[in-house]
Design a protein around this nucleic acid. Sequence first.
DNA 1: GTCCTCCTATAACAACGTTATGTACAGGTA
DNA 2: TACCTGTACATAACGTTGTTATAGGAGGAC
Lengths: 222, 222
Amino acid sequence: MSEATRQGGVRDRLLAAAVEKLEASGPESLQARPLAAEIGASTMAVYTHFGGMPQLLDEVTREGFARFDAQLACVERSDDTIADLLALGIAYRQFALENPQLYRLMFGLTTPGTRRAKERDLTTEGSPTSVSEGISAFNHLVDAVTRAAESGRIVAEDPVAVAGQIWSATHGYVLLEIAGVFGHEGHGLVRTLQPLIINLLVGLGDDRADVEASLARALDAV
Amino acid sequence: MSEATRQGGVRDRLLAAAVEKLEASGPESLQARPLAAEIGASTMAVYTHFGGMPQLLDEVTREGFARFDAQLACVERSDDTIADLLALGIAYRQFALENPQLYRLMFGLTTPGTRRAKERDLTTEGSPTSVSEGISAFNHLVDAVTRAAESGRIVAEDPVAVAGQIWSATHGYVLLEIAGVFGHEGHGLVRTLQPLIINLLVGLGDDRADVEASLARALDAV
DNA sequence: GTCCTCCTATAACAACGTTATGTACAGGTA
DNA sequence: TACCTGTACATAACGTTGTTATAGGAGGAC
């Protein structure tokens, strides 16, 4: 373990290997023995550094939200608040499609493969810590909605509720796209997600032509 | 096994026990030994009747879609096509909230707890059979959208695409509600789902007051 | 040097999915 | 009736999983 240990602690390398392996081979491949072997350590490393596989999964979830938050924070702001909102949605979808396994784990949709983690409650399965951290990523959306409302483009008396609506729509679409419902050639994006968000924003008070112009602007900004 | 065998075959009782246990204790509790013991049989019953735990999970998924389809089929039609559409959404949410574990399994969001089912592809994880059967349930929505478009309430040149939009929104909201994001007192329904669908339908061309009237009608019909 | 603490490797345990083996019971054929 | 065939079942075993117990070793405090 002489040279392997050099690049970061055992804990960090274990966590990094877990995140990578999750996306590569799915959650059921996150097993204590192969994971530890991958970084040249023994199984005990999982228990001394995390306490067990469920806690390691929690840390993977936390790491996922951190990356998610970082990616959403990269979205720049312009004077077109709707374009900013749409750009946020584009970044949201991009993260989910690039990290589908991580995305599902983050939102409690992945069942922990660990057998003995039966104490988890169903309704709070998003894991208590991860939900509160997920709020950080959610706040990006609330901010964008608030700015869009302040700019007069949409009506949002309750920005949190409006953000919840947009979140629901995007979340649902992204999961269905990951599941392959819309086909694998990106047809779903222009046939479903873009019209969905456009229609929703029109319903929220914006003009359709203005939304489409903002969408074009957001797509160019990528 | 004298009296236990009487009520239905071993296969049916095994499947019924699996569905019940899934909703009661989560997917990781679907284990061969306890399941077989629950109906007074030995573990081999799982293999003679299903071939293994993954196939049993597939059958549970199929059963879920059958129940889902049956529940959606119960929604009656009226001359208010938007009210019918909303009633379908109400039934959709009701099924998902009453069978959250089954719902997540159906849409491939639950990782099979069985370790050796590694051959599953990520993009087709909705499982090949279940997606095609899920289309049956989806067709209820497409029909409702088509009728709403024909009645002139909304504009839907591509009813399948519009149905996909409504599906995405409802699916996403329901999953977030199951995850407990909107709190557990049903605030999410009136603050998020109802405004979301209303705004979406307004964006699709209907009048806001008409949508709200139809929603009231759909809620009364329950 | 001595002690203390943390981390680690090895080995073992219970439980899981799965498979192999032997047995009991059903239905057809003579 | 007697025999054969095949399906369904119970028992036991195998490999792998998460986890735990135990012993060994590295690095600082005094």
